[in-house]
Amino acid sequence: MTALDTSPGSRLAARSARIFLAGQQLILNPIGLVGLLIVAALVLVALLAPMLAPHAPDAQNLDLRLIAPGGDHPLGTDQLGRDILSRILHGARITLGIVALVVVIAAPIGLVVGCVAGYHGGWVDVVMMRITDVFLAFPRLILALALVAAMGPGITNAVIAIAVTAWPVYARIARAETLTVRGTDYVSAARLQGASSWRLIRRQIMPACTNSLIVRVTLDMAGIILTAAGLGFLGLGAQPPSPEWGAMIAQGREYLFDQWWIATVPGVAILVVSLGFNLLGDGLRDVLDPRA
């Protein structure tokens, strides 16, 4: 299948080859490819929103409210005469921003907690994993709701709340991976060479955990988007006039019978994007998971 030399000359070359092979495998996997395209489209739309959007997302025109899709407003206007297409495009930025922030906050925390707990074992493991269990014991959306209610509504607090509910799963996965690799020969060899615990965790164990973590995080993104939309829908996430998709659905629900497009368009956007992340995650799992 590939003409690459199987004995790479340097560490960099090995890594590049691995990424190339993985990428190739992902592209050859139709489901993964669809997911990748959707996510790529989301990123592109988010970056170019101001250029793509025909109108400003908050520009109101009370005389042009509730206009059906077509003409100057391809996806119609909402109850305040704002262009829905422009709002959806700008909303992509918020959605992507939430996902990125949650991942940046939650994944490293989970990774460190899991690796440290798994590597050290003993009481460190017990304490860290029981804390993790406490967070896992609550349904995610409920915990996020409680946190936002306590901290006050707003997108920053929503991100923090979702991140707080997201890390325990990653800690669990990282710990499981750590347990399988901590007794392996290469870790022992590094330890015999005098590497410190922290160095061992950082250089030998963490890289071994990242594959399954990446898969899990990608699969989780759909959940993060839904949680964020759920919070927005309940008025606890992004605040008006922010074109956050969940909040858009919430405001459009009064019009579902007569002006279906106001709530349906953001609903479809959420559906497509979360489906995209799921498909990408599935594709990545096939590529990255050695046990697949």
């Binding site: 996997n29 579902l256 609903g267 559906l271 979360s274």
Partner: peptide
């Protein structure tokens, strides 16, 4: 290719949110 049912169903919740 294995799909876990759960992950495919999840996004459908979005549609449920849309239909109050």
């Amino acid at each position: 290719m294995r799909y876990s049912q759960r992950f495919i169903l999840l996004p459908l919740l979005a549609a449920a949110v849309a239909a109050a």
